[in-house]
Design a protein around this nucleic acid. Sequence first.
DNA 1: CTGAAAGCGCTTACAG
DNA 2: CTGAAAGCGCTTACAG
Lengths: 380, 380
Amino acid sequence: MRAPGGRTPQGGGGSQEPPADTAAGDAKRGDAVVRRTRGSSGKVKLDEVARAAGVSTATVSRAFNEPDKVSDEIRERVFAVANALHWIPNAAGRALASSRTHIAGAIIPTLDNEVFARQINAMQAVMAGHGYTLFIGCSNYDQAEGLKQAQAMLARGVEALAFAGERHPAELFQALKARGLPYVVTYSYRADSPHCCVGFDNKVAFRRITRHLLELGHRRFGIISQPVADNDRVEARLAGINEELADAGLAVPEGRCLIGPGTLDAGAQGLARLMDSPKADRPTAVICGNDNLALGALACAPFLGLRAPDDFSITGFDDLAISSRLSPRLTTMRVDNHAIGAIAAEKLLWSMGHKGKAAEPRELVPDLIVRDTSGPPSGD
Amino acid sequence: MRAPGGRTPQGGGGSQEPPADTAAGDAKRGDAVVRRTRGSSGKVKLDEVARAAGVSTATVSRAFNEPDKVSDEIRERVFAVANALHWIPNAAGRALASSRTHIAGAIIPTLDNEVFARQINAMQAVMAGHGYTLFIGCSNYDQAEGLKQAQAMLARGVEALAFAGERHPAELFQALKARGLPYVVTYSYRADSPHCCVGFDNKVAFRRITRHLLELGHRRFGIISQPVADNDRVEARLAGINEELADAGLAVPEGRCLIGPGTLDAGAQGLARLMDSPKADRPTAVICGNDNLALGALACAPFLGLRAPDDFSITGFDDLAISSRLSPRLTTMRVDNHAIGAIAAEKLLWSMGHKGKAAEPRELVPDLIVRDTSGPPSGD
DNA sequence: CTGAAAGCGCTTACAG
DNA sequence: CTGAAAGCGCTTACAG
């Protein structure tokens, strides 16, 4: 309610004359100083807030950044004036002076995906709660693109970085190390990883789902997977399947592990190819690298004259919203992606508060969700 | 290949002695200047590049920002040195000096959605191609949250802003106007909108899909829609349906326009409620506010003993990838979301290049995609 | 608790 | 085409 620039009636605090005038005489004399004119941004600056509130710029800055160090009365006055003047602090000035940008970055493979969208949402919320802005970059599952995004973020002065998976160019890790920049690897988790991981063990997860199928009695398996290139998570998944099968004395035959884009169509085509052999030879269980592939396969099954789980079993991974709504309901695994994002953000915040020291990794464990699409193999 | 700091053998260009030493005497004498020590960031700075290349800071800056103004020889030398030193320009310093941040912002309702993810992807690509970084913020369909995100972006110094829809607090538009900040409204388009819109006319689109159903002979309609609050797009969609029906002398009866979250479950529950009446009275056509709702309804239909299009017709909006893969394939409308994002980015870039002048709006037209789920009403 | 002023790392008007 | 230096809008070590 106090008018901007108005001094308190009490006039306390030992403040001198209003400095509004003194500031005018800032052209040094006797030195033939060349006056440059630089277009000021035209926006209200901290400087003007200070003048209007009758305090120094230091005090205005402190009122906002270290409120405890400023007397109640002055703090309130500064806030009121800043408000009245609609002052918005210039982030660049702040960053330059403090060498803190309050920006963190997250690099994910793709936005178009419930899984990563959820992680980002959570990260953003936690970061915002601590005064940090989150930069988001998409690699489109391409290592080189991911590196480019990371470099752009470094140039922007991010103070911490999160990225999905640990398969990234050595250059990235070097740059991070060189700058002592905190980072976390999200989504992936390996007990022996050199990085701070917040995620789950993809290999263990796929051993689990494979075991589920083995326990149901399946012996002939087929796989439909996303590309392995640049993707440690997919690699670990395939390894998990193969190891679990090997432990049971089994293996996926040549030509029964189909690799393609992680799309609905690839899932559909994959199933058609896997089922294109005499019934006695067909896989009875199909493990898909994610729900999307499984959903595509499921949608295609009727056209092949097949249905799960009577004619074959099939599993996904992710537990997308739609996976449990469609019929037959998909057997899959679910990860708490919101938690991954939130925890990753907390780890980063912790590191930033501890001189960049790496935070403790955190393993989340996916749940196996057995629904309609997995059952005992049909006797042939 | 040239060693950092090494001068060219030819020594051309009239360069004086290497300035490596002259730079040391920068403590002014005879003035009792107090030396402050401020932790330098520890990173390589433009200053060091200049010294190593034997040129002024101005020249280094120009070499990167206005390469034409620098001689070939010096430019190459500067590049080589900068490279060897791994110099990464400090964005804050640059922003402060030039009052250009090269940051643009985009605010969308949610990340978790093919539609917006695609727009963002396209925007980001176009922006990156022009040296701009894209800030992304999610409002979660909440006006107040959207405003908060926008304010955070202003504080970060975004030079342009894109946001979905035109239903936003007046405060937002005032702030934009006050700063002369270019912006575009994405997704929505109205011929008489005061804003630069890049999107489609939601009302016209839903008139179109309603007409399709009318032409098939439907006379009893039901609606399953997302919430109208804070959402001009949804409002326009409902208006489109109602106007088209009114033109045909029809109306959606009380209780047959169901509003809820735009989820699969809401779609399922919606269909159950709409179909909960004697067959002769049930709607024969159900218009959904988006594909997700329609997909949920479709998934639920078998449990109701119904199937489309024999027992009822149903339509969506968005043409999600899965909508055409599932059986029955959904009748829906498709918008080129990639184009919306790309064009929005170009408009913003254009505005920034033209002193913030508003760009021309651009209307995209959605395609009606007639598939399995719409057919003539079943005779009862 | 408060202020005067240097400094953060760039860009750019000015002068040559 | 190039350089010397002021200035962008803040923060903070120093001094009181």
